[in-house]
Amino acid sequence: MSGRAAFRRWPAAVLFGLLGVLAMPGLAQAVEIRTANHMWLDDTTVLVRLDIDMRLPAVLEDALANGVTLEFETQARLERSGRMGRDTLKTEARRVKLQYFALNRHYLVTAVTDERMDLQPTLGDALDQVARRLGRLRLDGVPESARDNPGELGLAAHLTLVYSALPLPLQLDAGLRGDLTTRQEWWRWPLD
């Protein structure tokens, strides 16, 4: 993430903090994690698999069709429960952009992390592609003891629409209306 982007992001957080007073945000119900699980790839690597429901609400579909680029992000955390709350041991994020490519009337799915691009002829295909891109997160450096002591560590994941990537008027409109605001609760399950 560039410095400029970070510069632009935290005022947005402040703004949404303020706007939170105006409207109680509600999760866009159609963009959510349905289930989550994990798979050990080796002794210290865990692959987090997320089953994501990527049915966009009408306002986002409308925005997408009108040239607005949507960005989604998933985060996976390796956590340890302690007396003072949860300690995050590892974090992995994946961000994907979805936009309409008007020149060939396809939807372009771009992984922000590795800049991989996929063109999909329909929105459904594009959303499936987005779900696939977002639904695989690899956590490296997991302590080996975690495998021997199931339940000692936990995994958490959540999906969010990156609001700071939305055009500003839409951010404000979304903040005021609450339609686009997510309250992405973390999906948690034990690491065993």
Binding site: G67, A102, P167, P169, D173
Partner: peptide, 16 residues
């Protein structure tokens, strides 16, 4: 795309 986006955001922009 920009124009479409701009036109699409006209309402929110006015609200802003």
């Amino acid at each position: 795309a920009d124009y479409r986006e701009f036109a699409y955001l006209r309402g929110p922009m006015i609200q802003g």
